[in-house]
Design a binder for these strands. Sequence first.
DNA 1: CGCACTCTGTACCGATCGGTACAGCGCCCG
DNA 2: CGGGCGCTGTACCGATCGGTACAGAGTGCG
Lengths: 181, 181
Amino acid sequence: MASSAREAAIPALAEVFREHGYTGASLALLGARTGLGKGSLYHAFPGGKAEMAQTVLDAIGAWFEAEIYAPLRDDPDPRAAIARMFAAVDAYFQSGRRVCLVGAFALSDGRDLFAARIAAYFAAWRDALAEALSRAGRNDAVTLAEDTVLAIQGGLVLTRALDDPAVFARLLMRLEHRLNG
Amino acid sequence: MASSAREAAIPALAEVFREHGYTGASLALLGARTGLGKGSLYHAFPGGKAEMAQTVLDAIGAWFEAEIYAPLRDDPDPRAAIARMFAAVDAYFQSGRRVCLVGAFALSDGRDLFAARIAAYFAAWRDALAEALSRAGRNDAVTLAEDTVLAIQGGLVLTRALDDPAVFARLLMRLEHRLNG
DNA sequence: CGCACTCTGTACCGATCGGTACAGCGCCCG
DNA sequence: CGGGCGCTGTACCGATCGGTACAGAGTGCG
């Protein structure tokens, strides 16, 4: 199938963008990590590096939407959805060893190119979490949601800076306690 | 004086690294922003781009040490030092419009090159704040300090991502209230 | 004045950048 | 079996990368 090579390449592309940023992710690196030559890469992504990055951002957004945001909004048990969010976040970011690509893009390169997607990712997260908190009876739902999303990003920065995954683990415990008691 | 051109260039260099990251900050950009040709740049920084980045990181570290960490540790009134920290942070980061270079470096490029400096910057901040909180009588000083430093970094990420300085302003108010009542 | 020394613009280096062109391989379908 | 097409490796493009070499301008001092 035409799109299967494309789909298969996405996780590898994501990893390279995560580790090197947009400008730092060279076609040589992208090709090496995916195992695809330049020809294949441009056949699958005619738009070049920009299309690869967009596709990766969309895939990440879709994953979070399905695994985290949708349950937060729709699960009849909001507290269960929040617990699920923390478990998914811990697994996804490998307890802080893995960086958030969207957050990294927001800070430096490719910010202008992908600003809309970046903003949408965080806004959706904050709003879905606020929805769950609201249904759980919190009246400070929006503030608490913003604070939580922001703390997770900060936790990733500090964990990476200090090279100490315990920072992220402690943070998630604190946050979950604050949200779910 | 020999070092005056060097010193004068540092803020401009810092701004370029902040906006483009380490690999994204080309010598062309660095030269344009500082107003120095390649010859002058390499005369002032014989070690090239790496020395420029190190110098910038050191200058930032020194500024935070003098303006924020030292008062946190030494001011006889720890609550005043904490208030001063929030005012300095708000001014330095221009209410979130400006990104933290150290945090940006921690997330992506140049991380390995400058890991020690990056870790020292955050560890010093966390420890100085914990010292102040401890002297102010908080028994959860270390946790609270870690949480605060991390939240500021996350606030910068989210503010940039959503392009909304109000996020950072709200965060600082919340944090100061949590620390100083 | 003239020497010496600091500084700086410019030309140049090999390497690598993102991207394009294209020839040929292999697979599928008629 | 054979023709066509999806796919891919490779050579190549101009631009730019970080870095070096160096000649000459500017400057201060004996």
